[in-house]
């Protein structure tokens, strides 16, 4: 275990109506075993003791699964480690003397609430537009009555692994939510349970995605590269197919 000294440049913004700016902070003796968020905890304790306002940031499970945390670190959503959420990024990835620039996930569809905290409810509304199977509780058939091959189940699981953190949007040069939307549409179009609604689903989820102000896809693969769950742009291709199907075959 060793420790490092860091300079942090963090985006500070009071709320969505006010203008923000970078503030610079110096941190000393940061253990390299610390997680990135624990490093911000240390900064916040330091700021509190100095009578200053701590940095607001979203986080919860700190196990890389809830999807609540996320910031752009030196220009990369969730920081330099691949397939890693910000909470699972550790300080051993940095060197003493480094200056780290921390910015919120930016997108027209993600208004900033405070500092690094953004409103990602646009993603919820995309799911609400059709990211489900319309089945009420009860009266379902036995779980084994429709066989699903391992390969299909695995592909669906690959897509379903999305944690909804929004890093794909934050990293996309066009602020597109294609990977997020594509993952959900893929999951449900791969499984037999999702098929009855596939056309309507593709249409309404894409429509909602556009309505929220997310951009289009220019096939630059940044989303896939920063995705903490390694979700492939193959899911975007699948969504395009589903969308085309709904276009050509929809009623």
């Amino acid at each position: 275990m060793s420790s490092i000294d860091l300079t942090l440049k963090i985006w500070r913004q009071k709320n969505n109506d006010s203008l923000g700016d970078f503030e610079t902070y110096i941190l000393r003796d940061i253990s390299t075993d610390m997680s990135f968020l624990e490093m911000i905890d240390v900064l916040n304790e330091q700021l509190t003791r100095e009578g200053k306002d701590p940095v607001a940031f979203d986080h919860d499970c700190r196990e890389g699964i809830c999807g609540m945390c996320g910031a752009v670190v030196d220009g990369v959503a969730h920081g330099p480690d691949r397939e890693t959420t910000l909470c699972q990024l550790h300080m051993r990835k940095f060197k003493s003397g480094d200056t780290i620039v921390i910015e919120p996930f930016r997108s027209i569809a993600f208004p900033i609430k405070k500092d690094l905290m953004v409103d990602r409810s646009a993603l919820d509304r995309i799911i609400q537009a059709g990211g489900y199977v319309s089945v009420n509780t009860g009266g379902t058939v036995d779980g084994n009555s429709i066989p699903i091959g391992t390969e299909t189940a695995e592909l669906a699981m690959d897509a379903a692994a999305c944690i909804g953190c929004g890093a794909c949007v934050a990293s996309c040069p066009n602020s597109a939510a294609m990977l997020f939307t594509g993952a959900k549409i893929s999951q449900l179009s791969l499984l037999p349970q999702g098929l009855p609604e596939r056309k309507e689903r593709a249409r309404s989820m894409v429509a909602q995605m556009d309505k929220e102000g997310f951009g289009y896809c220019s096939n630059e693969k940044e989303c896939e590269a920063v995705c903490p769950k390694g979700i492939s742009i193959r899911n975007i291709a699948r969504m395009n197919r589903e969308f085309l199907r709904s276009l050509l075959l929809g009623e």
Partner: peptide, 18 residues
């Protein structure tokens, strides 16, 4: 049964059963 109907991708055997 409920979760399967919702599209939860449970692990499957090669024959397609849970």
């Amino acid at each position: 049964d409920q979760c399967v109907a919702q599209g939860v991708p449970f692990a499957r055997e090669y024959g397609g059963t849970l």
